[in-house]
Each structure stands twice: as C-alpha cells, then as structure tokens.
Design a protein around this nucleic acid. Structure first.
Lengths: 218, 218
DNA sequence: CCTGTTTAATTGTCGGACAATTGATTGTCC
DNA sequence: GGACAATCAATTGTCCGACAATTAAACAGG
C-alpha cells in the first residue's frame, strides 16, 4: 500500500538470497520509475511512493519528447494529434469553465500581447494558455494526458516559433478561443481551435519552403 | 545519439570519480526508464536506446494505472476522459479508415458475439476493438496516447464487467460504431460513442446502487 | 520538563574480487 | 586459402566486507 515501508536492503538481500548490491540496483530501478522513495537514517528505508499528478506529468513529458524525437514524427502528425485532443476537451471546458480558468487564459493573452516579451516567454505563455484551456474542462485525467502531450510537442513547435510566427494573429486566435469558452459556445470554440491548427500548419509549411529555398541557394 | 555506446562502467567511474557500484546504480535508473540497454561481453556496454512505440505504450499504461489507482479517480472522471479522447479521433477514423481497420473491428465484433466467450476474453476483445478504432485514425501519436489511456482504465472498467454488463447491447453499440466508421459518418459515430459512454456510466451506477443495497443489508 | 548526548538502524559509497558472457583473435587442420 | 575450434580480452553481473552519512529514538543531566 502507498506509504508502506519495504524491508531493509539487508533483509531483502537475505530474503531473495542475493547480495545487498543487487538489491540496491533493483531498488534504483523502482526509484527511477518513482514507485518508491528512500530515506536514510534510523527510521529510513524504501517506501511505496504516492504517484502524484506532477510526477506522472513529468514522466508523460519525457516519454513523449523521446518518442517524438526518436521516431521521426512529422510535424503534421504531432500537430494533428495535439489539436484533436485539445478539441476533445473544448466542449467540456465550455460547459464547466470557472472564473479562475477564464482569468488565467485572459492573463496569458495579456502577457502575450506585450511586444517586449521574449520568444521563450511567449512560448511558455502559449503553453500556459492551452494548459488553462484543458484545465477548464475540469477533468484531471484529461488534464494529465493533454498537458503532457502539449508540453512534449513544445520542442517541435519551437522549431517554427522563432522565425515566422505572427504574434498578433496568434493572440487574436487565443482571444477568440477564450471568448468562445466564456460564452460557452462549444462549436465556435471548436472552429477557433481548427483555425489555430491550420495557421500553425501553414506557418510550418512556409518555414519548410523557405528552408528548402535557402538550402538550394547554397 | 540513438545506438551510441556509453563509456564502460569502469571508465565512467574514473571520469566522475565515483565507484563502479555507484555508476551501476545510476545506469540502472536509466535502464528502468528504458533510456539505455546493456549488453554483456567483449563488445558489450550501455547503449542509448531507441524508444519504440511499444515501450512508450507500456510506460504509458503503467503510469496511467498507478495514477488512477492511487488518486481515487472516480469512475465517471476516467470514463469521461477516455470517451472524450476516443471521440476526438472518431472523425479522423471515419475519414481515413482502411479496409484492414474495418475488418479488425468486425473481427472483434464477431468474437464478442460468441456467448461461449469468457469474461476475460470479452474484455480483451473490447480493448482490441477500441484499439482498432483509434488506429483507424492513422495517427501514431494519437494511437499511442489513446491506447495507453484505454488500457490503463481497463482495470477500472473490469469492476463492472463481470457483473452487470449486457453483452448484446455492447455488441450492438460496437456494430453501430463500426458501421458509421465504414460509411464515414463522423457525426453518427460521435453519437454512437456518446451512447456507449452513457450506457457504461449507467451500468456502473446500477452496480454501485446494488452494492450499496447489499452493504446495507449486511 | 527541557536539553544535549549517545546509540542504533539504515541508506550511501567505496574497493576489490570473481563469475558469466560474448565478440575478436589466433591457431590448426584439410 | 578456408572452415572450424580453442583461446583471449573486454565488459557486465554478482558478491562481500568495510566505512561514512544520516536520522530518529533512547538516554542522561540539569
């Protein structure tokens, strides 16, 4: 059970008739999956860990980033998946959004409107905006899955961020999304997300085309 | 880079001025995340692992199962998240489904129609059916996310499977879903999934009510 | 009753040793 | 020269013993 203490390393070694080193290596594997946490000292030992949303979220992100980077996932495929999932929680968000979530989205939009904002901060704010949107759906499982997916795809998205993105247009789309969530218009929210998706794909295509051109020139 | 070999344990120990035991414990942590794989022998060592969809899928499931079991996720919440994501890929599945996917779905429906099928096998076939549905969307990222979520929620679903589920009704709903995917009617497919979701919630509520009754009786 | 000290239990690290595995090398025979 | 067997060397896997670091509990003193 969560919080239970495992036998000490010495006891485990005796119990399984292996050395303490081997037990330790095994425990490290469990610790790496954050299934246990260890504490030193008199009342120390290995304890069954409570898997928090944060820990699960972090694991989700690392797995996602690796999967995307190691399997030559196309931008279109990743983008499609991301927006498909985000649209999935749009109706829920429209139905259940609280004032907190609306304000969080509005705050990010305000931040993004500042021209002095650095590219990195704009990116982070973008993530925070979409995170607020999925959180508005009020389903922690959905939030966990989606925010992990969104953040995992952030490196891919960054490829295009620093070059060709029109901030004003992004902010306008974000505002449209926030407005539809506020007015609980699920269909309009869906449409706005579709527009944001097509714009993202469009920007990516433009960047790719320009790159191909400069590559040919050299 | 993927496939690259790390320095040998002895070399790493020298490089970081720690003992080989400590290096090994660290490597075990990486191995637990399947970031590396180790091979013994002359040309052995630790190699940067290629994260396959299967490995990522397995990790997704274990994380999901633990998260659900350790955070007292309500059945309704899990169910809502699952069907929200599944509905997200329904339009894509309708647009892109190949004959293979249609046949896979049909095969599972046929299997489920056999009254002699054990409850466990019916469950497995259920998972396979929905897996075929998300695969029909033709987006590997979506498949990875969704099939992981579906399988993670299977233990929760099993709670109700062995008691109150009306197989004929499930099979009828599956048939409806398969038919709408075949005829590429995204809206009808969405509606069929909604019906399946409400039936699932309904069955769960019935089971809970009955349990509360028997608990009061004792 | 409070405070500081000691003590015991436990994990963290180290170094050395040997077994198991496996590819590469070498040697032998045809 | 080629096929096959024996040997070798590098590497991971396991074990053991020792000690340091840490921590909470038990204890002693005022």
């Amino acid at each position: 059970m969560v919080g239970d203490r495992l036998p000490s390393e010495t006891e485990l070694a005796e119990q399984f008739a292996v050395s303490r080193s081997t037990v330790r290596e095994a425990l490290k594997r469990l610790a790496a999956q954050s299934l246990i946490r260890t504490r030193r000292g008199a009342t120390g030992g290995a304890f069954v860990n409570h898997l928090s949303y944060d820990a699960a979220h972090a694991q989700q992100i690392t797995t996602g980033v690796l999967l995307l980077s190691m399997n030559a996932i196309g931008f279109d495929v990743a983008c499609e998946a991301r927006f498909a999932m985000e649209r999935a929680c749009a109706p829920l968000a429209c139905a259940r959004r609280s004032e907190d979530h609306l304000q969080a989205m509005q705050a990010e939009i305000a931040r993004q409107s500042d021209p002095a904002l650095s590219d990195e901060a704009f990116c982070a704010s973008d993530v925070a905006f979409h995170r607020a949107l999925v959180d508005a759906a009020g389903n922690p499982v959905l939030s966990w899955q989606l925010s992990g997916a969104i953040e995992a795809m952030q490196p891919l998205m960054n490829m295009i961020t620093f070059t060709a993105r029109d901030r004003a247009r992004i902010v306008a789309l974000h505002s449209r999304i926030a407005a539809t969530v506020r007015s609980m218009e699920a269909a309009a929210c869906d449409a706005a997300l579709r527009d944001l998706e097509s714009y993202t794909v469009e920007v990516h295509a433009a960047v790719m085309a320009r790159r191909a051109l400069t590559a040919r020139a050299t």
